[in-house]
Amino acid sequence: MDYNVYIPKLAKIIEIKEEVGGSRPIKSFRTHFINKNDFSHRCGQSAMISVLGKGESMISISSSPLVKDYLQFSILKMGRVTTALHEMQVGNVIGIRGPYGNGFPIEEWKGKNLVFIGGGIGLAPIWSVLNTALGKREDYGDLILIYGARTSKDLVFNDELKELKKKITVFLSVDVEEEGWKEFVGFVPQNVTDKKPSPKNSITVTCGPPIMIKFVIKALKDLGFEDEQIYTTVENKMKCGIGKCGRCNIGKHYVCKDGPVYSWAQLKNLPQEY
C-alpha cells in the first residue's frame, strides 16, 4: 500500500471570488495542486477540503472535469472549517483529498434534454455538470436551468449566469418580491410548476436545501416525470469521505462513497435519514 487515503494533497488558492455577501456569504475558490498528481474527478463528485488546524469539510467540486487548470469550490460559510476558508487569501495553502462519491451518470444521459433545478448554494454541484454538458453540447438535447435564491443578492455565479442566458434557457427566481426584479417571484418548486419543463426524453438534476428538493420532486411528479428521470444529491455529516467512519449512511448506503447522487427511484426506497 503506497498511498495513504487520509493524507491530503496540498493546493494553493489561486483565485477567490465573493459570490454572495451578507450573513450567509458564499465564496468561490480556485485551487491549484502544489505537486503534480493524478487527481481527476467526475461531475457531481466532492473532495475533502482541509484547513489544517481546523479540520476537514466535504465540498462538491463546482468546476467541470473539462477544466484542467484549476479545481473550483463554491463554499457557504457555515461552521468551523468553512469560516476559516472564508478568511483565507490568494496564495494560502489548503489540503485536498478525493475525489469522492459516485457523481452524475452523464454518459447515460447522452441524447437527452437536461433540466437543472437549483436553490442557493445548490448550484455548485449543478455547475460542474452543466458546464460539462455545455462543453460537449452536441452530446445533449435542450439544456434548461431553473435556479432561485432568497434574494437576487443570494444568487451565486451572477456574472456567469448572464453569459449562460445567451446559450441556454435560464429561469431565475427570488423568494420574495424585490425592486427591479423582473423574473419569477416565489420558491423554486413553484417556478418549476410555472415553467412546466417537459418530461419527454428529459433528465432533471435537483440540488438545494432538503425542503426545496422535497417539493421540487413533488412538482416534477405532477408534471409527469418518472422516478428514474429525477436525480438529486444528498448531504450528510461526513468525516472520512470513504465509507468507514460510519456517520453519513442512509440504510446501507454511505453517502460519501455510494452517493451523493441518487435517482428518486433509488432514494425513495432508502430511510429518510438526511
Binding site: 468551523r80 469560516t83 476559516a84
Partner: peptide
C-alpha cells in the same frame, strides 16, 4: 466539540469560535 443548541440564527462565526 460542537454546538448543540444551534438555531437558524446561529452565525458561522459563533460556531467557528466555539
Amino acid at each position: 466539540t460542537i454546538n448543540f443548541a444551534v438555531t437558524a440564527d446561529t452565525t458561522a462565526e459563533e460556531k467557528a469560535q466555539r
